[in-house]
């Protein structure tokens, strides 16, 4: 990402995503926390579709390291999902950009669900416990993505214009 062309906005949004990932919601039952979207995946999907030249698998992977320490996960476990989904998004960026918001939200659902399954498998291999919160995080992400896209698209178009 190039800081001279609004890269700061992407950086700031990653910081906000990290904060949201660690967000503690008062008066809410624990199971509702399972709906928490995988904010990193949602955000890198958004930026890769909107500004493919400003994001990449390396920056996604590096951001994953900060998610790891914040959420008490083994180093590299978030990066693996972020990098893989960013790569796939970049690969099909031109096709995804033409799809409707609802269709992209379905793709986000699939990606977050797959990442959840991947992380659960890694947890099983590395820590010996399989924790998969079913597709709930995917549903949360599919709801969060259109909100994020509507809120950010205008700003992104304005700030990232080269």
């Amino acid at each position: 990402m190039n800081p001279r062309h609004g890269g700061w906005l992407i950086g700031l949004s990653v910081v906000v995503a990290m904060t949201l990932a660690a967000f503690q919601v008062p008066f809410v039952p624990n199971w509702l926390g399972w709906l928490r979207p995988e904010w990193g995946v949602v955000l890198f999907f958004f930026w890769t579709v909107e500004a493919p030249s400003r994001t990449g698998v390396v920056s996604a992977w590096l951001a994953g390291l900060f998610f790891d320490v914040l959420l008490d996960a083994p180093l590299g476990s978030h990066g693996i999902g972020f990098a893989a989904t960013t790569y796939l998004t970049a690969r099909f960026q031109s096709r995804l950009a033409m799809r409707t918001l609802a269709q992209r939200a379905i793709v986000v659902f699939g990606m977050v669900t797959a990442v959840g399954l991947l992380n659960a498998t890694i947890g099983l291999l590395v820590r010996g416990d399989f924790v998969w919160r079913a597709p709930l995080a995917g549903i949360g992400a599919a709801i969060a993505y259109p909100v994020l896209a509507i809120a950010m698209s205008g700003v992104a178009a304005k700030r990232l214009r080269s």
Binding site: W61, I80, A83
Partner: peptide, 11 residues
């Protein structure tokens, strides 16, 4: 390379 690196540092 990143996937292999991730698995390595995770372990």
């Amino acid at each position: 390379a990143l996937l292999v690196l991730s698995l390595g540092i995770m372990l």
